[in-house]
Design a protein around this nucleic acid. Structure first.
Length: 802
DNA sequence: AGCACGCCGACT
DNA sequence: GTCGGCGTGCTC
């Protein structure tokens, strides 16, 4: 077994295969499958993953592995297998999938250096360039305008050599630790020996009499109210020693969470958990859909199931939509399981993510709570996988590899023979349909744990408001209710559903709308900087004072940003104290939590925000929820728009009256009769499901069919259309009769970053060879991709049709 | 993806 | 002869 099969760090379809390398004698014992290595690849050196070991290779002249990057494998056998499956499933490169499974810091960085090999003088230009240095990074050479030819010659003559380095991004955090260098009992003596004026030093030594164990220097300084120089003085006298110690960055102070114990379950909860516990006990796989209304105690069910898993000596993965958005969720898990929990989400720094990952990797925790990518946690004895808010679209990764965490969860659940729980108050149609067919086990929680009723929902027809001469964003009813709510000393949550309503700039004279010069999309106005920005290509420009088309000075920003609403609100109800929560006010780290704490401490009456306030928040004093524009995403070109509207309205309604006080929900809309709004107001999921399923059937959309989306982009309009056309034709020729191939259709954003985008959609029920077919077709375009700047991306189960 | 190699055309 | 710009093919 002296040959390693390696997946190298080159994301190109022609390299998407294993390469064989000889394992040098010195690595024979220590090299394991799943480790990262450095290998020579052509003239350079790159990183790769060892995915297997063998004795034979069909290749005769093998190179040797240059180095090993890990002491223990970073990918388990299971994850390697999962990676292969996932890459095949999503038509991604193996390397891309493996990288996605690991924290960013494990991604290699490459550096090219020029090394001076001779003391003899070099040609003048090069001599000046090196300026006495032994080596220079290559980028610097490119920046200095020296003839490439000269360098080439120097390299050929052996005066300069090129050095390819693989660098690690890993940084570890260290603290300075202090401890006494002498026996604790002799400390007292030493204190007496110190000069009288060295008061601080005496105090410090006295501290160690009671606490002889090593201590973090920072904490010591705080505790003894002293300074580093005092410690240094004692170190110099040989009484104390300091040394560096590696520590985990801990984004959460585990002691800050009050410990909780298991609550008594309601009858419904017990019924729901029983079969799950059985599967945990018997170590068998099954997928459960836990359909529970908001406030029905799904989390407690998760917690108690996880407790069983832990008692069983196994591990648990919990996925939550985006955890930085729900600190309350972290609190519940840390509260129950303390430091046995690792937390993984995008709000952490890359170093923090790495440390949390290592705690999992070293099996120092049994529970991981995290966003999408936490599904790849390198556990080896998984006892349960839970996906909370199963319907959230953040579980679908929108760039390569385009995977859905739910699919990965079920795949791993099978691997580990453990149950997978999908929880939601508003399950996706896909999941609910599967539950109905018996593919998933359905468990339903219809009652809130405190037996309170769901709050009443009142729909306000905004057209009537307009007819009555009210042109503001607030209906009379909503204004009244807010005022009443505040006067009772209670709090309100206002949701601005901003999708499709961003703040664009339009000239009131000629109607000209400012668009991005590189994308077919209106620029968005940002108040803080008074600039216009593009969401897709990061283009920006100052806000114009006059219209570039007609020179009118009546150019204004339009739409209903949260800032505008906030201004209106304070005009309308001057006494209201408002906290605004949107991307602008939550950009800084921790600001999210800070705003929520302020609101919880009743420092404001109204919490105004976008989607991010719809989920998971639980404030006992909130009795009013207002939805300003319920239908703003109903008219987007997206077959899931009704479903998304229903989900959002149901979720946000659940924020009101969760405790003692009764709640009230007011939904403002221009389409009050739409079934997703009507049925959400009655909390009637079942009817919504049936209605929506009929629509999906009529228009042939999931879950009745599967979708695959191929997007083609090219700087030239015609080339994009032609390539797409050809793909459509090739597909049509080779798919089954029932399969529909649509296109070429311009993508919803027809131009992005100066590239025209066309797409082809495949709707199919049964097309077992579709992946192979698409792969074959794409391969036919390999040349055009490489030479002509053509780009083809495939999404095997698109969530957004962009 | 990167990189080398080789052909070609331009410049002096 | 000297230099730089691409197109092409390869990477165990």
């Amino acid at each position: 077994m002296n040959i390693a099969k390696v997946i190298v760090d080159v994301p190109a379809s022609s390299i998407n295969q294993t390469f064989d390398y000889k394992i040098p004698e010195r690595f024979q014992e220590i090299l394991n499958v799943g480790m990262r290595v450095i290998v020579p690849f052509g003239p350079r050196k790159i990183m790769g993953f060892v995915v297997g070991r063998t004795d034979e290779s069909s290749f005769d002249k093998l190179k040797e592995i240059s180095d090993i990057l890990d002491i223990t494998p970073v990918l388990t056998d299971e994850l390697l297998g999962l990676g292969k499956w996932l890459a095949d499933e999503t038509l991604s490169m193996y390397i891309t999938v493996f990288q996605a499974m690991l924290p960013q810091v494990l991604k290699a960085q490459y550096r090219k250096e020029l090394v001076r090999m001779t003391e003899d003088s070099l040609p003048e230009d090069l001599e000046n360039f090196f300026a006495g240095r032994d080596f220079v990074v290559y980028e610097e050479f490119e920046a200095a305008k020296i003839s490439f030819y000269q360098l080439q010659k120097a390299i050929q003559d052996g005066d300069i050599s090129v050095n390819y380095q693989v660098k690690s991004k890993i940084t570890k955090k260290h603290i300075t630790v202090v401890e006494p260098r002498i026996e604790p009992h002799s400390l007292e003596e030493e204190i007496l020996d110190l000069p009288k004026i060295a008061k601080k030093q005496k105090e410090l030594l006295a501290y160690f009499i009671d606490h002889p164990e090593p201590i973090d220097q920072k904490i010591l300084v705080q505790k003894c109210n002293t300074s580093k120089s005092t410690i240094k003085a004692l170190v110099d006298k040989g009484l104390l020693v300091t040394f560096k110690q590696e520590v985990y960055r801990n984004p959460y102070d585990d002691n800050a969470y009050a410990r909780t114990v298991a609550l008594e379950l309601t009858e419904q909860q017990q019924e729901a958990i029983a079969p799950i516990k059985q599967h945990i006990r018997e170590e068998t796989h099954d997928t459960f859909l836990l359909h529970g209304v908001t406030g029905s105690g799904k989390t407690e069910v998760y917690l108690q199931a996880i407790q069983d898993v832990i008692d069983n000596g196994k591990e648990a993965i919990v996925l939550v939509p985006e955890i930085s958005l729900t600190p309350q969720m972290v609190r519940r898990f840390k509260g129950r399981f303390g430091s046995n929990v690792a937390v993984m989400h995008s709000g952490l720094s890359s170093g923090e993510k790495y440390d949390e990952w290592r705690r999992i990797h070293r099996k120092e925790v049994q529970v991981v709570v995290g966003a999408r990518s936490a599904i790849f946690a390198p556990f080896e004895k998984i006892g349960i996988i839970i996906i909370d808010e199963e319907h959230e679209n953040s579980y679908k990764q929108e760039d390569q590899p385009r995977y859905h965490a739910r699919d990965v969860a079920i795949y791993r659940g099978r691997n580990h023979n453990c149950p997978v729980i999908l929880g939601s108050a508003t399950p996706t149609l896909e999941s609910y349909a599967r539950a109905q067919k018996g593919v998933y086990q359905l468990a339903t929680l219809t009652k809130r744990t405190n037996n309170s009723e769901m709050p009443d929902v009142e729909i306000v027809d905004m057209r009537d408001e307009l007819h009555a001469g009210n042109r503001s964003m607030f209906s009379r009813k909503l204004k009244e209710s807010i005022e009443a709510c505040i006067s009772r000393g209670e709090q309100a949550v206002l949701l601005l559903n901003r999708r499709g309503y961003s703040t664009f700039v339009m000239c009131r004279d000629c109607g000209h709308v400012k668009e991005c010069p590189h994308c077919d999309i209106a620029l968005t106005y940002h108040k803080n900087s008074n600039r216009l920005k593009c969401h897709y290509c990061s283009y920006e420009e100052p806000m114009p004072k006059i219209c570039p088309e007609c020179n009118s000075d009546l150019i204004r920003f339009f739409g209903t940003g949260t800032q505008r609403i906030e201004e209106n609100l304070t005009q309308l109800i001057p006494e209201a104290r408002v906290i605004r929560m949107d991307v602008d006010t939550t950009r800084r780290k921790g600001s999210h939590e800070k705003l929520l704490t302020q609101f919880a401490n009743k420092e404001a009456d109204i919490l105004l925000g976008t989607q991010m306030i719809a989920k998971g928040l639980d404030f006992e004093n909130v009795t009013l929820v207002g939805v300003l524009t319920a239908d703003s995403m109903l008219h987007l070109p997206d077959f899931r728009s009704s479903e998304k509207t229903f989900q959002l309205l149901t979720q946000v309604s659940g924020r009101a009256g969760r405790h003692e006080l009764p709640g009230e929900v007011i939904v403002q809309t221009y389409t009050p009769d739409h079934y997703s709004i009507q049925l959400a107001s009655n909390y009637d999921y079942t009817t919504f499901f049936q209605n929506e399923m009929r629509t999906r059937k009529a228009f042939q959309y999931p879950p009745y069919v599967f979708l695959s989306l191929i997007t083609v982009s090219h700087p030239n309009h015609v080339s994009a259309v032609q390539a797409t056309q050809k793909i459509v034709q090739l597909l049509m020729k080779n798919v089954g009769e029932d399969t529909v191939v649509l296109g070429p259709t311009p993508s919803p954003i027809a131009r992005m970053k100066d590239r025209y985008r066309y797409q082809c959609m495949v709707k199919y029920k049964n097309e077992p060879n579709l992946r192979t077919l698409i792969r074959k077709i794409i391969r036919q375009f390999d040349e055009e991709v490489r030479k002509n700047d053509l780009l083809i991306t495939v999404d095997m189960q698109p969530y957004q049709l962009m």
